[in-house]
Structure formats: C-alpha cells, structure tokens
Nucleic acid binder design. Structure first.
Ligand SMILES: [Mn+2]
Ligand SMILES: [Mn+2]
Ligand SMILES: [Zn+2]
Ligand SMILES: [Zn+2]
Lengths: 139, 139
DNA sequence: ACTACTATTGATAATGATTCTCAATATCAT
DNA sequence: ATGATATTGAGAATCATTATCAATAGTAGT
C-alpha cells in the first residue's frame, strides 16, 4: 500500500483521489514546499486532474486539522500550506521574489518561552516571520 | 491648535472631522491600544458620530501609509491598528480572551538580524507574535 | 468672509479568498 | 457486490476590505 494511503488512513481519512493527489503534491521535493490553495489547484489542473477548488480548500483544512499540514499567513497574503514534518521552524520571506526559506534558532525559541513566562502566559504557539531581500534580489 | 490637527498637517492630510475623531480614538489611553476597523466604527457610533465604515477603512489605510499607525494581522483575524509611537515592539495574544500585550526583547531582535545575515538577506521587517493563555485565563 | 478648486466623504456596489450547500458519486466494512 | 455513509464538484454565500461616484467640506487666495 502506498505512502499516501497510509498517511491518510492513519489520521482516519478515507483514501480518495483528491486527497491522495493533493498529498502527493505536498510531498514533492521541489524548491518550494509552501503552497497556496490556488497553487495546488493549478498544479492539479496542469496534471489534467478534475478536482474542484472547493475540494482543495476542504482537503487542506482537513489535513491541517489532522496535523498533516501546517497553515501559514505570510504578510497579509493568502494562506500557504506545507507538509508537517514534525520539525518546528520559522520562515524568512523575500519581499521581492516571494522565496520562502526556513530556519530554526534555539536562542530565539528559548527567549520566547522566557518572555511568555515573565508576562504570566502559558505559551501555546508562535509565529516568527522575517521579511527582506534575498541574496538574489538584493542586487 | 490641537494635537490631532498638527499630527494630520504634519503628514500632509487635510484636517477633517473623521480623521480627527479616529486619531483621538487611537490616542486614547485605555487598556486596549489595538483596534480593528469595526472597533473604531462602533466607538464612533456610540459617540453619535455619523462616519461611514468605508471612511474608517480609508482613513486607517491613509494613516498607515503616512506612518501614523501600524497594522497588525494576529492569527488569521482581521487587521488591527495601533498608533505608531515610534518604539518597535512585538506582541503576545491570549487565545482565550484576546488580550494583547506588548514586549521588546533585545536578544530576539539581535538574533533575527544574525539569522537574516546568515541566510544572505537584507532584513526589512519582522513579525513575532506569541500566542497563549494569559494569567487570568490559564486558571 | 466669499470663491473656486480639490480632496474627502458616505452609501453602495464590487472584489477576492474562503466556506457552505446540496444533489450526485465514491469509499469501504460487511 | 451491497448499502450506509462520507466525499465531491459546482455554484451560491460570506465576510472583510476596497472601489466608485455624486454630494459635500477644507483651504488657499482674494
Ligand atoms: Mn516551512
Ligand atoms: Mn502594539
Ligand atoms: Zn528574492
Ligand atoms: Zn486571556
């Protein structure tokens, strides 16, 4: 049985064509792991698949609820989704070309916990997004 | 001449009733400095002012462009606005009651610069939002 | 204070991303 | 294979925000 099939069964979702195809797209090893719903819809169109945009949104939300994907809101743009590989990381986004890169910084993570504690909060989540010009675009 | 009048003239905006009133609301020293457009619209309504919601959005966007206010996007909610006091800070938001508190952490700020540099970016902006349960809500 | 020139406003329509509805179809345990 | 149930696709609905446009207000110059 295929990988996607297992992933879906594991989270209690029926194995349907839209779900398998969307999961495959998210699993692609490309230069961009971060997809908008429209992105995925267009890839499906190019592949000749006849899957509705509503289904793409629906499936992505189900995947998010199931913990298979993570949803991001960069700047004030549309939602973007990426496969949840279990390793937390934050993002830096090029304001010119839109490239998204990932990073993880222990010191920042620890600091955040300290800040939350000092203010009396139980920290459940955080979003750290850096914006700037990437190495290609800054010239 | 009043404070609001000066602020507006300084950024090249005509002194109109909607602009002055919205600026006054933003300058209020209350427990909440962070307003949505709807928030401000309702305060105006309560004050008996007859200012359209479209005007509120328009004026807030003009204020943002002029550098008078800063717009935030917490979680995936509506835009919230606060007066730009010139002192950069980040935010922690209670996921239960919605309270927003501010903080500034030198170490995090320095780390962000380092991360951007390491990845070859010129950093122009960042959003760091923490989410959790505030001291009142965690019980 | 009056005019004339523009900028601004308020009402309403339009937009765009996302979600909802619902009848038709597909999945899967039996 | 069958039937109970979940899922799908198309299009309508939603909701925050922006655009349109005729009426009105602000302001520089008299
Ligand atoms: Mn990522
Ligand atoms: Mn603030
Ligand atoms: Zn770039
Ligand atoms: Zn709270």
């Amino acid at each position: 049985m295929k990988l996607e099939t297992n992933n879906l069964k594991d989270v209690g979702l029926k194995v349907t064509i839209p779900r398998v195809k969307i999961l495959k797209i998210l699993e692609q090893e490309t230069n961009n792991k971060h997809f908008s719903a429209e992105n995925i819809f267009n890839i499906l169109l190019d592949d000749g698949d006849d899957i509705g945009l509503a289904t793409v949104y629906r499936v992505l939300t189900q995947f998010e609820t199931a913990g298979l994907v993570i949803r991001h809101h960069f700047e004030s743009e549309n939602s973007v989704f990426e496969l949840n590989n279990g390793k937390h990381h934050d993002h830096i986004v090029c304001i010119k070309c839109g490239k998204v890169e990932e990073f993880f910084d222990d010191i920042v993570e620890i600091r955040q916990q300290k800040i939350a504690k000092r203010l009396g909060y139980i920290l459940t989540e955080h979003h750290l997004n850096l914006y700037g010009l990437c190495s290609s675009c800054k010239n």
